[in-house]
Amino acid sequence: MTEALAIQGLGYRRNQKQILKDINLTLPTGQIVGLLGANGAGKTTLMRLIAGSAINFRGAISVAGVTTAPQRKAQVSFSAQMDGFNPSWRVGQVADVMTALFPDFRTADFLQLAQLLALDQKQRIKRLSKGNQRKLQLAVTLSRRASLYLLDEPFDGIDVMTRKAMLSSILRWTPEQATLVISDHHVSDIDQLLDQVVVIKDQTVVAQEAADTIRTQGQSIEAYFESFYGGEQHD
């Protein structure tokens, strides 16, 4: 079966600064992968490159075996795909717009997810609390049938109860053969869900390891991640 993601020799510059370099990364299908790195390490940039928001890169990116931008976009569901939605729209309207623009969007799934996450169909986006906006983003992202899901810091600023509901949603709604990549700089938010972790530091991938391997050595994933930062202070 083709890999969910295959990246070779990826490099990316912006404003004359090297943001990412020499990235080689392969992810199999059917896994939940944690993308770990300090604030500003390049996690979001990597997701933007995979999804197609960022386009001026060196190297090769393929998702589920396809490489051109429109094909990749059909295989990837990125949590940022709601950027630009009219804030006056209601939650229910969001589903209509998504259906028009994305043929793989499942309105029935979205309605169930919205209910699970306690989102009111009639609420306007601009009136949603930050937590509810994040929940809406998650519901939208998971309602598409994609091969690769990219969640960028989905639990940022989320309280414990909401996080539990969101974790449940992720488990329930990710298709079996799909791969899900979650970026977070607070590892403990997601660590019991992860099959493997990918650590980004110094503009490149410094480690890719199975969660079980790390724990078998008696180390928590959080400690493993922090070991890359030695005695440095980070967020």
């Binding site: 939940i32 974790l167 449940s168 488990l171 019991q192 869900l193 099959d195 079980d212």
Partner: peptide
């Protein structure tokens, strides 16, 4: 498997293993 994954809030692969 899926039910256990949801109840325990862990990955399906973990349950399967």
């Amino acid at each position: 498997v899926r039910q256990l994954a949801l109840t325990l809030t862990v990955n399906v692969n973990t349950i399967q293993r």
